[in-house]
Amino acid sequence: MTDIHRQLSGPQHDPAGDAGHDGHPPRVGFFTDTSVCIGCKACEVACKEWNAIPEDGMSLTGMSYDNSEGLGASTWRHVAFIEQDAPAAKSPEPEGRTELRWLMSSDVCKHCTHAACLDVCPTGSLFRTEFGTVVVQEDICNGCGYCVPACPYGVIEQRKDDGRVFKCTMCYDRLGAGQEPACAKACPTESIQFGPLDELRERAALRVDELHRAGVEDARLYGHDPEDGVGGDGAFFLLLDEPEVYGLPPDPVVTTRDLPAMWKHAGLAALSLVAGSVLSFAAAAFTSRRSAG
């Protein structure tokens, strides 16, 4: 594998160092354990307040208790609510009642190891911080919107009124002051855990084992694996069902993994365009000579 491939995909244990931060602090992240989320939305509120995010409308969506619908320019933490018929009730319910299972999960920017948003940003506005997180510098963002369809998780979004993009900064200002992000601070059940990513990964592995032993076979980690399509997420999850149930992509891949191949094809296509034109002029010369001769 060449260097360029390694930069664009695959395991990368030091994204901050790779971005040129020497002597940087350890990479930090979020481990969101959805098995203890109670859907209180304290994280959504704390995030909005701390980051002074504008109000972005109140609507009753009919999507259970979810009225913020998804992550966006003005929603950097989003609690998803899923109502399901419980898959396998341990004991049969009386009178044919089915048990309701309620899944709740607080979603956030994944702060990808290989962040497509950052890769495709033409201005350098999106950058890798010394903490290994991904942040937008609003004074440089020029509103091109390229990062929006590049993100494999549908996180980053433009604000309609000014065209610039906004997303979770993992409370960059608080990290700089040695504090944890507002959402993690506000979470009453420790569903949102903040800390050095290595520690979080260890803790998460133990937690899944614990749940499996307790008979919660559906428990699984999502975004924890440095071998996955984005090189692992800085914000990863413990889920109780398939990722797509929560609106998450089951196997996201950073689009720039294929960029070297794309440039190669564009180069070949450009050459074939020239060749086609040469051919056209040659064909015209040939036929006119033939009709003249």
Partner: peptide
């Protein structure tokens, strides 16, 4: 399956 039919990406 999806989350209320919502798009995964933007």
């Amino acid at each position: 399956t999806s989350y209320y039919g919502k798009p995964v990406i933007k």
